[in-house]
Simulated scan of single mutants.
Amino acid sequence: MGWELHTIATFAGHRHTDSTLRYPPPWADLADKLGRGMDHIHAWRIGMLTGTDAATAGTPR
């Protein structure tokens, strides 16, 4: 799923797409962070279902 450049420019309040292209894409790092977060959530859910230590791994105490 990608956004069309004109849509991003409009969303950002830019009149011209040249202004939008000056900024680095924030979604590049966001996709990696989301993937890591989902891995953590999946491990936690598996731990809860199986009763293993994975259920408490990485949770604050």
Score class of each variant (00 low, 15 high):
Gly37Tyr: 07
Leu21Val: 07
Trp27Val: 12
Ser19Thr: 14
Ser19Trp: 05
Ile41Thr: 05
Gly37Asp: 06
Asp39His: 06
Gly35Leu: 14
His40Gly: 07
Trp27Asn: 11
Trp27Lys: 07
Ala43Asp: 15
Arg22Trp: 03
Arg15Gln: 11
Ala31Asn: 05
Ala12Thr: 03
Ala43Val: 06
Arg45Val: 10
Pro25Gly: 09
Ala28Met: 06
His14Ser: 02
Gly47Asn: 01
Pro25Thr: 07
Ile41Ala: 12
Arg45Gly: 00
His16Phe: 03
Lys33Ser: 13
Gly35Met: 10
His40Asn: 07
Arg22Ser: 09
Ile46Asp: 09
Arg45Gln: 10
Leu30Asp: 09
Gly13Pro: 01
Arg15Ser: 12
Met48Cys: 13
Asp18Tyr: 05
Gly13Ile: 05
Lys33Ile: 09
Arg45Ala: 10
Asp39Pro: 00
Ala43Ser: 15
Pro24Val: 12
Gly47Asp: 01
Leu34Asp: 07
Gly13Trp: 01
Gly13Lys: 03
Thr17Phe: 03
Thr17Asn: 08
Pro26Tyr: 08
His16Gly: 00
Gly13Cys: 06
Ser19Glu: 15
Asp29Gln: 09
His16Thr: 04
Gly47Ser: 02
Asp29Lys: 12
Leu34Gly: 05
Gly47Trp: 00
Pro25His: 10
Asp18Thr: 13
Ile46Pro: 00
Trp27Gln: 13
Asp32Ile: 12
Arg36Ile: 01
Met38Ala: 12
His16Asn: 06
Ser19Tyr: 05
Thr20Gly: 02
Ile46Tyr: 01
Asp18Val: 07
Asp32Glu: 14
Pro25Ile: 04
Arg15Asn: 09
Trp27Ser: 14
Met38Cys: 07
Ala28Lys: 11
His40Arg: 15
Gly47Lys: 01
Leu21Asn: 14
Gly47Pro: 00
Ala28Asn: 06
Ala31His: 08
Gly37His: 08
Asp18Gln: 08
Pro24His: 12
Gly37Trp: 08
Leu30Gln: 11
Thr50Ser: 15
Arg22Met: 13
Ala12Ile: 03
Asp29Ala: 14
Lys33Cys: 07
Pro25Glu: 10
His42Ile: 03
Thr50Phe: 02
His14Trp: 02
His40Gln: 12
Ala43Arg: 15
Gly37Cys: 04
Gly13Arg: 02
His14Phe: 09
Gly37Asn: 09
His40Lys: 15
Leu49Trp: 04
Arg36Cys: 02
Leu34Ser: 08
Thr20Asp: 02
Ala43His: 11
Ala28Phe: 09
Arg22Val: 09
Ala28Ser: 08
Thr20Met: 05
Pro26Asn: 03
Met48Ala: 14
Ile41Tyr: 04
Met48Leu: 15
Ala43Tyr: 01
Arg22Tyr: 04
Leu49His: 05
Asp39Cys: 05
Ala12Leu: 15
Ile46Ser: 05
Asp29Tyr: 04
Met48His: 04
Ala28Leu: 11
Thr20Ala: 06
His40Glu: 12
Ala31Leu: 13
Pro26Leu: 07
Arg22Pro: 00
His16Ile: 00
Pro24Lys: 14
Asp32Gln: 11
Lys33Met: 10
Met48Thr: 06
Pro24Phe: 11
Tyr23Trp: 06
Leu30Tyr: 11
His42Tyr: 02
Gly47Leu: 01
Ala31Glu: 13
Met48Tyr: 05
Thr17Ile: 15
His42Met: 02
Met48Ser: 05
Asp32Thr: 12
Thr17Trp: 04
Asp39Ala: 13
Gly37Met: 06
His42Thr: 03
Lys33Asn: 08
Ile41Pro: 00
